[in-house]
Amino acid sequence: MSKATDVLMAGFGGQGMLLAGKLLAHAAMNDGREVSWLPSYGPEMRGGTANVIVCVSPEPIGSPLITTHAALVVMNLPSLEKFEGRVRPGGVIVVNSSLVERDPARDDCVVVTVNARRVAKEAGSDRAQNLVMLGAYVGASDVIPPASIEKAIENEFSGKKARFVPGSIAAFRAGVEIGRAAAATV
């Protein structure tokens, strides 16, 4: 859990991948680790795909930009098609099956398929699909204790947004369970 790792999180703009990445970076920083959060910021941000690379390491981060990844979290099909080939063997791929109808074509990775929309709804927070996905990644990769992310969620949603905290945490926890279960079956 303490070695260097990274994840690429990708989806349509507005699906919350940048925020999911920020929560991970924030939580890992508070746990005393080095982190970097590098978003794509091209024109694709406007309605196209948005993605972010988060690196987590006990050592200072060298290149925040990397082209192969320990993990991939994708919200939509274009992101899966673009990035699935970049996951290193033995890595984790988390796919949102509510939008992506096919499975990843990788048999050398831990694949977690999550119907983020349904799980989020069941957890009582329709909007927290990104946190279901983050949870599934955390559960499958064991990158960070889930409690650290929950603390980061509380930090992120303060003041007027505090009402989103319980639903967000419930969605995140549901994702963690799915991730753990998927990793255990490999």
């Binding site: 920020k22 970076a25 920083m29 080095e34 970097s36 590098l38 978003p39 910021y41």
Partner: peptide, 10 residues
Amino acid sequence: DGMIGQMMEP
């Protein structure tokens, strides 16, 4: 460069 401006780090 733009990457330093756009990325988050502690």
